[in-house]
Design a protein around this nucleic acid. Structure first.
Lengths: 123, 123
DNA sequence: CCCCGCCGTTTACAGGCGTAATCGTACAAG
DNA sequence: CTTGTACGATTACGCCTGTAAACGGCGGGG
C-alpha cells in the first residue's frame, strides 16, 4: 500500500493526535501546509479507500484513525532508501553523513551510546 | 531538480560506468528492469532537459554523462527522509533498525568501528 | 416543520511519471 | 547515388498526485 507524500502528512497527524475528525486534521495541518479543508478531505478519502485509515461515524462526522502503524511505514520508507542507495547497509549511510559533515558532536555521542548498547545486547 | 525513481536507475548506471551511450545504458539496465531501449531513451532525454546529464556527440551517437554528483543526490534523498521521518537525526533511524532487528552483528561491528573513528576525529 | 449550512462524497483538472511506439534524418553499405 | 537502418526527437497515453470546487443529504435552529 503506497502512501504519497501529501497523504503521509495526514497520517502523521493521525499518528500523533490519534483518532481525529477531518476538521481536526485540517486544523493541525492547514497552517504550515496551507491546504484548504477540501484538500485534507480528499487525502483522507484516498487513505480511506486504500485502507490506510478507518472512519467511525460520530454524529454527523467521522473520526479517522490510522490503520497502519507508523513504525511499519517508517520501516518501509527507510529500508527502501537503504536498499536503493546504500546497498541495504546502515553503515554507509552513517558514513555518508559523517563525510558531508552533517553530524554534530551530540549526534556522535548519541550514536556511540546507542551502538554500545546494541553491542552489549548482541554479545 | 527532481529525479524520479525510474530516472535514478539510469543515473546509477552513468555514475557507475561513466559516460555511456543510450545503448550502453539500455544494456546495463535492460535485463533486470526489462525496459525496452525506447524507455531508456525517454529517460535519458528527460534527464537531459533537466540538465541532470550532458550529451556529447560521438559520430552519430551521444555519450551521456552525469552532471550531478551521486553524493549530492544521495545526500538530498537521505536528508529528506531523515527530516520527514526522524526529525533530522540519524540516531533515531539507527535505533529504529535496531528495534526491528534489522542489524546483523557485522552491521553493528561496522557501525561501532565507524563511530569510534568519528569520535576520535571529533575529540 | 422547513430551510440553511455543514459534512462527507464525487468530480475536476493540470502536471509528473512509467512505459513505449512512431517519426525524421543522417550515415553506411551496396 | 540510392536506400535501409540505426539514432535521437517527438508524440502517446493512462495512472498517480496535488490541489481543490461542486454536489447532495441530514440534522439543528427558527
Amino acid at each position: 500500500m503506497r502512501i504519497s507524500a501529501a497523504e503521509s502528512q495526514v497520517m502523521e497527524v493521525l499518528w500523533r493526535d490519534g483518532p481525529s475528525t477531518a476538521e481536526d486534521v485540517a486544523g493541525a495541518i492547514g497552517a504550515d501546509q496551507n491546504w484548504t479543508p477540501a484538500t485534507v478531505k480528499t487525502l483522507l478519502n484516498r487513505l480511506l479507500t486504500k485502507g490506510a485509515v478507518s472512519a467511525e461515524r460520530i454524529g454527523r462526522r467521522y473520526l479517522y484513525a490510522p490503520q497502519i502503524a507508523r513504525s511499519d511505514y517508517v520501516h518501509d520508507e527507510s529500508k527502501g532508501l537503504l536498499d536503493r542507495l546504500f546497498d541495504g547497509k546502515l553503515a554507509p549511510l552513517v558514513s555518508h553523513f559523517a563525510e558531508t559533515k552533517q553530524l554534530s558532536p551530540q549526534d556522535i555521542a548519541e550514536l556511540k551510546r546507542l551502538i554500545e548498547e546494541l553491542d552489549d545486547d548482541g554479545a
